[in-house]
Write a protein that binds this DNA or RNA. Structure first.
Length: 487
DNA sequence: ATGTCC
């Protein structure tokens, strides 16, 4: 893990820190990090800010290279970064700006179960979830798709699995982009990626992926929470997963394809991991088509995880999931690139390629791309905390369009490398520590739990406070975990 | 994040 950032960070607002374009000759725009005084000290301990400056050198980048308060060092781009490029100005698309886990994201389900109803069954519930939902690296699941089926799945997204009976039509309405990016190109997904994806749809994966049973701990905005169906003391379910081995392979394949692109298209990069190609080049179009296919696969994955979890709830509580009110509040991507209309100054509005890597879309009230149900309150922004800590539901606000290309943060944000976290755990039984906090944890091994222990992450409450105070999304409700399954 | 090295 590289050392601390030593370059400039100018405080330009209560929660805004600028890396001026003058810092390096190759920067095309400023860097801008949203953080308070405490978080910025944690942020400058790794090379995340230098990566924000690196991204500011990309051809066609607009306004500024942005980072959320949960930013930390990642592959090429920092995790927690937002960058928008203009295709008409040679703007690039970069796999590193999306991340290896294409369309990693979270979905939140609400229920009519109160914690009082669920408490006597919680151990059985978590054990059954752990038995029935495949977790862990390389694991396959109960669903298997032939290549022709997988191709259709990647073209159609969530509607493919809903049409096969694994969900309800209403789930689609409450999934970002309806659970499907248009113009997906499964034909540009490699045979190797197909092979890895065939039996992994409907599996959780490992690392920070999890499925968590929670209780609404505190409601901050009564109106917004009411519209989302969230009330204090009610049980919720949070699912955090992505595109598994298929998305990883799509990313890897295209990083190799992009290796010589800078030379071919005549630009230089400060870091090879920023590998990218113009949006309007054959290489760029190939990645975008394959990325959309992988993104659609990830939505199918979360939809199948949802279906399996609903079946477990039905078995434990003896009622249909519909009767239990296990409805989808919303599903958001936090590793993705999308084309969206944004202001670029001088009253100009253009379609930009918005990279969000560890950042969540946070469209404001009235935005045409959010469900009608949420028009008055803004798009739900789901923020998973680290294991054993709170998660948050926020709602997108107008400030996101003005300041962050319609984006907000995505989680607590790692503060410690995985190896450092294992060292810190020093054999401590994290599952027993969680148990003492009233959280049942089930995982395949102790190592994964050590890597994900709360001390390895920033304080999610603090992160959320920043995005609330700068007006890009507002706090709606806080959720506390009562049971978690992990890979 | 990831069949944590094809």
């Amino acid at each position: 893990m590289p050392g601390a950032y030593t370059g400039p960070l100018e405080k330009v607002g209560p929660c805004q820190w600028k890396i001026p374009r003058s810092y390096r000759e190759d920067m095309r725009v400023d860097g801008l990090i949203f953080a308070d005084d405490t978080l910025i000290e944690q942020i400058r301990r790794d090379q995340g800010p230098e990566q924000v400056a690196n991204v500011a050198t990309l051809p066609g980048i607009q306004r500024a290279s942005l980072a959320m308060p949960d930013i930390h060092w990642g592959y090429g781009f920092a995790i927690g970064g937002v960058a928008a490029t203009d295709p008409e100005q040679g703007g690039v698309i970069s796999p590193g700006g999306v991340g290896y886990d294409i369309n990693c994201g979270v979905r939140l389900l609400r229920s009519d179960l109160s914690w009082d109803d669920a408490r006597p069954h919680i151990k059985r519930l978590v054990d059954q979830l752990y038995r029935d939902i495949p977790t862990g690296v390389g694991q396959s699941g109960r669903y298997s798709f032939r290549p022709d089926e997988l191709s259709e799945l990647m073209s159609k997204g969530s509607s493919y699995v809903v049409d096969r009976g694994w969900g309800a039509p209403r789930d689609l309405e409450f999934t970002e982009a309806g659970g499907r990016l248009d113009d997906a190109r499964p034909d540009l997904v490699s045979p190797r990626a197909f092979a890895r994806g065939a039996d992994q749809c409907g599996t959780l994966g490992s690392g920070n992926h999890f499925l968590e049973v929670q209780v609404v701990d505190r409601v901050i905005d009564d109106q917004a929470a009411g519209v989302m169906g969230l009330r204090e003391g009610m049980v919720t379910l949070l699912i955090h997963s992505g595109s598994r081995g298929l998305g990883y392979q799509v990313c890897d394949d295209h990083l190799a394809m992009f290796r010589d692109a800078p030379q071919k298209y005549g630009f230089t990069l400060p870091d090879r991991q920023l590998a990218c190609a113009p949006v309007l080049s054959p290489e760029g179009q190939s990645y975008l088509g394959a990325m959309r296919a992988a993104a659609n696969y990830a939505w199918c994955n979360r939809q199948l995880l949802t279906h399996q979890a609903r079946l477990v709830f039905e078995r434990i509580f003896g009622e249909s999931w519909a009767a239990l009110g296990l409805d989808l509040v919303y599903d958001v991507a936090h590793n993705i690139a999308k084309f969206e209309d944004h202001d670029v100054g001088d009253d100009l509005r253009k379609s930009l390629c918005v990279h969000r890597k560890g950042a969540t879309r946070a469209f404001p009230p009235g935005h045409p791309e959010i469900p009608r149900k949420y028009h008055e309150i803004g798009q739900p922004v789901i923020i998973p905390g680290s294991m054993g800590t709170a998660s948050w539901v926020l709602a997108g606000q107008a400030g996101s369009m003005a300041q962050s290309f319609g984006s907000s943060c995505h989680g607590a944000g790692r503060m410690m490398s995985r190896t450092a976290a294992i060292k810190l755990a020093d054999g401590r039984r994290i599952d027993k520590e969680l148990d003492a906090m009233g959280i049942i944890a089930r995982a395949r091994g102790h190592k994964g739990l050590a890597e994900e222990q709360p001390a390895a992450y920033k304080d999610v409450d603090q992160v959320v406070e920043v995005v609330d105070s700068v007006g890009i999304s507002k706090k709606v409700a806080r959720l506390r975990p009562v049971g978690v399954i992990k890979g």
